[in-house]
Write a protein that binds this DNA or RNA. Structure first.
Lengths: 204, 204
DNA sequence: GAAGTAATAGACCGATCGTGCTATTTTGTC
DNA sequence: GACAAAATAGCACGATCGGTCTATTACTTC
C-alpha cells in the first residue's frame, strides 16, 4: 500500500514553500516526465538547494506522488468544478470539454496536459506512482461516463448512446488533440479537438 | 540541418549487429523513452559493451535518430504496406486501422506504440529528434487523410466527410486506445479503439 | 528573550549518464 | 597468409542522479 505521508509542514512559510515546489514540479513534469523530474533541476528552477527540497519530500517517489496529488487538485479546481457548477445534461459535458481545452490550450503547462503525458509515459517504473495514475485515469473516464449518462437521462443524447463508449471517444479526442498540439506545436489542434468533441455530442 | 550519417557498416556481421541493436533500441524506447534510452542499459540488454555500441552510433542523438528510422521502417512494413496492398477505398482504411491495432495489441513493443509515446514525450529536447518525429506524425496524418479521400472518391464515405477531420479523429482514437491499453494494462481498449474507428467509418 | 522546531544550506557518497581514447579481436580482400 | 578495415572491449573522465548527514537560519510559543 502506498504509504500516506504526513510531513504536514506546520509553519505558514512551509505551506507556501511546499505549494510553490509542487506548482513548479507539476510544470516541470509536463516537460521532463515524472521520472525525469529531478531534485537537482527542481532546486535550480526554484533557486533553492536540493536538501531544502528533501525537507519537504523525503524521497523521489514521495515527491512524485505529491506532484500527482497537486495536479489532481488543480484539474479538479480548473476543469471538474466548473462543469459540476453546470446543471446535469449535455451542457455539463460541454463545460467539461471546454474547460479542458481552455486549460490545455492556455499553455500554462509547457508540455501540455499533465495526465496525457504521465499516462503514456511508461518510464514511470514505480508501481505506486503507476497505479495512482491509473486510478486517476479510471476516475476521469468514469466522470465523463457519468456526465454522459446524465445527458441521456435528460434526453439530450440518444438513449442508445452507450456512455462508456462515448467516454472513451471523448477522452481519446482530448488526448489526441493534446499530443498533436504538443508535438507539432500547432494550437489549431486544440480547436480541432474541441470541435470534434462537440460533433460527437451532436452540437452544431 | 540534421546531418545525414553514413557510418554504413561494411561487413555482414556489422549489418546484423546494427539491426539487432536498433531492434532492441526501439523496444527499449517504448519503455524508457528516447531520452531515457541509454548506451549503458542498451549494452546490458544486448550483452555487449558500451564502446561496442559507439562504433555503430557515435553519439546519443545519432542513436535516437537511427532508432526512429528503424521504427518508421518497421511500421511501414507491418502497418502501411499491408494497407497499400488493398485497393483504394474504405477497405484500405480499415486495413490500416486493423494492422495498427493488431501490431500494438500484440504486445511486441512492451510500452505500446513507439510513436504515441515519443510524440507525447516532450523530454526529447534535441531539436533534430523532435522535428523528425513531427515530420513522421504529419506524414501519418496525411496518409490517413489520403486514404479517406480515396474512400470518398470511391463513394464509400459520404462526400462531405472532410478527410482532415477524419484523419485527426482516427489518429486520436488510436492514440487514446494505446494510452489506456498501456496505462491500465487492459487489452480490451485495443478492441474498443478498433470498434470506435469502424463506427467512425460507418462499418457495422 | 529562551527554547524548540521547522526550513534551508552545504558537503559528500556511490551509481549512472554520455563520451572519448586505446587495445584487441574478427572479417574481407588481395 | 598478409594486411587493412571493421567490430568490439576496457578503461577513464566529468557531470548528474537520488540520497544522507551535519550545520545554520528563520519562526513560533511560552
Amino acid at each position: 500500500m502506498p504509504t500516506i505521508h504526513d510531513p504536514a509542514p506546520r509553519t505558514e512559510r512551509g505551506e507556501k514553500s511546499r505549494a510553490a515546489i509542487l506548482d513548479a514540479a507539476a510544470r516541470l513534469t509536463t516537460v521532463e516526465g515524472l521520472e525525469g523530474l529531478s531534485f537537482g533541476r527542481l532546486a535550480e528552477v526554484l533557486g533553492m538547494s536540493k536538501s531544502g527540497l528533501y525537507a519537504h519530500f523525503r524521497s523521489k517517489e514521495e515527491l512524485q506522488l505529491a506532484t500527482i496529488e497537486a495536479a489532481v487538485e488543480l484539474y479538479g479546481r480548473v476543469i471538474v468544478d466548473p462543469a459540476l457548477a453546470v446543471p446535469p445534461g449535455r451542457d455539463r459535458l460541454l463545460a467539461l470539454v471546454d474547460a479542458f481545452f481552455d486549460f490545455v490550450g492556455s499553455g500554462d503547462f509547457p508540455g501540455g496536459c499533465f495526465f496525457v503525458y504521465t499516462a503514456v509515459d511508461p518510464a514511470t517504473r514505480r508501481e505506486a506512482v503507476r497505479s495512482r495514475l491509473a486510478d486517476e485515469q479510471r476516475a476521469w473516464l468514469r466522470l465523463i461516463e457519468e456526465f454522459a449518462r446524465e445527458a441521456i437521462e435528460a434526453g439530450e443524447l440518444p438513449p442508445d448512446a452507450e456512455p462508456a463508449r462515448l467516454a472513451f471517444e471523448i477522452d481519446s479526442l482530448m488526448i489526441g488533440a493534446d499530443a498533436n498540439f504538443v508535438l507539432l506545436g500547432d494550437p489549431s489542434y486544440i480547436e480541432e479537438g474541441r470541435a470534434a468533441c462537440r460533433r460527437r455530442l451532436g452540437v452544431a
